[in-house]
């Protein structure tokens, strides 16, 4: 395994990580037909952490999340959630455990109202009326625009609003761990910042987050630790600030201009 090139000194050792990890992925292999997309990914997410998964398009980031949440069946490897191997478990069962996946491209139910999308998010936990109302209030306070548009069809929302809805819908399922797939995709810079703030706020509320992002600058600015995957394997891992300084990462994913801004952002985390 080629992991750990930048983290020898600062990061805790592998055994420490897996001991308090809420989500541990071990040697995960996924194939699409004859083509192997993941060649044995291993990573850990500890309770209370934001972990970023970065890498270029097609590196296997989304595939990793899809295999964890049961949207696709891994060929081999283990996915340990709270100590239990859930590899191959269908997605509708995984979400009931509190491992919630907000998929790439929002995937809101465009032909149903904003409110009904949230109702569907709460599907695994049919609650009492009062409890439901309280959860709706919480989400409407988080994203006031959803309150305004609750009776509109989700398909009529803008891209940014749809992303808020997708996140809120995921939160309705009471996640212990939230898998966020490319939440900033296709959004204007101002909205990207809002997504980043949301991630930080959710984390402050106690939600553990595994964040997949192509926008490495944003991801590293909100994450405690990061994994860089390339061609279906983990290339680099470590605390975000270190990964952000890694020469290879800077060259491949951050670009010269973003580097300074990012260096300082990651330090504050």
């Amino acid at each position: 395994m080629s992991a750990g090139t930048s983290s020898a000194a600062a990061a805790p050792s592998r055994t420490d990580l897996s001991q308090d990890a809420v989500l541990s992925i071990r040697d995960l292999v996924v194939s699409y037909g004859q083509v192997e997309a993941l060649h044995g990914i291993s990573l850990d997410v500890r309770r209370g952490e934001v972990v970023a998964l970065i890498g270029s398009n097609g590196a296997g980031k989304s595939t990793t999340l899809r295999a964890v949440s049961g949207m696709i069946r891994p060929a081999s490897g283990r996915v340990l959630f709270e100590g239990r191997d859930i590899a191959g478990m269908p997605s509708h069962e995984v979400v009931r455990l509190g491992l919630v996946h907000v998929p790439e491209g929002r995937q809101v139910f465009a032909n149903q109202s904003v409110r009904d999308n949230l109702v569907l998010g709460a599907f695994p936990h049919l609650r009492s009326k009062a409890e439901t109302a309280a959860v709706f209030e919480r989400e409407f306070d988080r994203f006031p625009v959803l309150r305004e548009r609750q009776n509109q069809l989700a398909g009529t929302l803008s891209g940014g609003e749809q992303q808020m809805l997708a996140i809120s819908r995921g939160l309705m399922a009471r996640p212990k761990v939230l898998l966020l797939d490319e939440p900033s995709m296709g959004l204007a810079p101002l909205l990207v910042k809002q997504v980043a703030d949301t991630v930080k706020q959710l984390n402050a509320e106690g939600v553990t987050i595994l964040l997949v992002e192509q926008m490495a600058t944003m991801a590293l600015s909100v994450a405690h630790r990061a994994y860089v995957i390339q061609n279906g394997t983990v290339r680099i891992e470590g605390p975000s600030a270190e990964v952000a300084r890694n020469a290879e990462v800077v060259r491949a994913y951050l670009g010269g201009a973003a580097q300074h801004e990012l260096g300082s952002a990651a330090e504050t985390r």
Partner: peptide, 24 residues
Amino acid sequence: STFGKALQAVAFNPAAAGLMGINV
């Protein structure tokens, strides 16, 4: 009904419906 909404969700996007905890 919530059940009917779930059925509609399956119709619209089965993969996303699965992520909602709906047994497609």
